[in-house]
Amino acid sequence: MRNIPLSDVDATPRAVLAIATDYPPDTLLPRHVHRRAQFLYAMSGLMEVQTDDGAWVIPPYSGVWIPPGKPHQVRMRGASTRSLYIEPAARPRAGSACEALQVGPLLHQLLLASAEVPALYQTQGRDGLLLDLILLELGSARRLPLFAPMPAEPALARLCQALLAKPSITVRPEAWARALNMSPRTFSRRFREQTGLAFGQWRQQACLMAAVTRLAAGDAVTAIALDLGYDSPSAFSSRYRQVLGQSPSSVRQGL
């Protein structure tokens, strides 16, 4: 199925619905929610996803798993997508949090083929087997570290949102502790309690998410590294490769 609203087929008595959608550049899908779980895959372009839990950047050849009933907002940066909408009882991943997932060559080809599957497919035929295999692959897909969890505490959340809007690796936890009238030790403990990450890890995630977006837009590695406050392009590239398993230049090349 191609470029049709989920609402047109949501009631179809099938465990999985596959829809291919092409979005104009910079399309914003405002905050919404699905009855079914969703796996949203960018065949091309970039996706920025926000939920109450935090923010994700999803580069090409990656996807985001969205549990059923999870409110979310997505900005499409020139993305052509494949979406799977999965009945809650059939979902292949547990938990109530969204996840960025790596899409390997087999899953990529399966998702490519899913666009030709009709809503009322034969469950025991080729289409049903194809979707069953997709669910198995989704269940074992590797989670990617492109997530910045959002704290529930309003004052701390505002600081996090400001850093996401203007990320810098040079922001110091001591400055945030002073802004919140906390000792550095109390701040470090509170930040980890609220986000599950140490401040330095969270700051790094925010910077890498910004870097992925800019790399996909064609910005130079040197300019990104310096804007984010890294000492040198090589220091930025080394950290990027350590966390994401590939060089920054590979994103610019569309790999």
Results as ranks from 00 to 15, higher is better:
1 M>I: 06
5 P>R: 02
7 S>W: 02
8 D>F: 04
10 D>V: 15
13 P>C: 01
16 V>H: 01
16 V>P: 01
19 I>N: 01
20 A>V: 02
25 P>A: 07
25 P>N: 04
29 L>C: 03
34 H>K: 03
34 H>C: 03
38 Q>A: 12
39 F>Y: 14
40 L>E: 04
42 A>E: 01
44 S>M: 00
48 E>F: 02
50 Q>C: 08
53 D>W: 11
53 D>M: 05
55 A>Q: 12
56 W>V: 02
61 Y>M: 15
63 G>Q: 02
66 I>M: 13
67 P>S: 09
69 G>S: 12
69 G>V: 10
70 K>H: 14
71 P>Q: 08
72 H>E: 05
76 M>V: 06
78 G>P: 01
79 A>T: 13
84 L>V: 08
87 E>H: 13
92 P>W: 01
92 P>M: 03
93 R>N: 03
93 R>Q: 12
93 R>L: 15
100 A>P: 12
103 V>D: 00
104 G>F: 00
105 P>K: 09
107 L>H: 00
108 H>W: 10
114 S>F: 02
115 A>P: 00
116 E>D: 14
117 V>K: 02
121 Y>L: 05
133 L>Y: 06
134 I>R: 00
136 L>Y: 00
141 A>P: 08
142 R>C: 09
144 L>Y: 08
147 F>Q: 11
147 F>V: 12
148 A>S: 15
152 A>T: 11
154 P>W: 10
158 R>M: 11
158 R>G: 03
160 C>S: 11
160 C>V: 14
166 K>A: 13
168 S>L: 13
171 V>D: 06
171 V>F: 15
173 P>D: 08
173 P>T: 05
174 E>Q: 13
175 A>M: 10
187 F>N: 02
190 R>C: 08
196 G>C: 07
198 A>V: 10
199 F>L: 06
202 W>L: 10
202 W>Y: 05
202 W>Q: 07
203 R>N: 08
204 Q>A: 10
207 C>N: 08
208 L>G: 08
210 A>L: 02
210 A>E: 14
212 V>R: 05
214 R>G: 05
220 A>S: 14
220 A>I: 01
223 A>F: 07
225 A>E: 09
227 D>A: 15
233 P>D: 03
235 A>Q: 14
241 R>F: 09
242 Q>L: 13
248 P>I: 07
249 S>T: 13
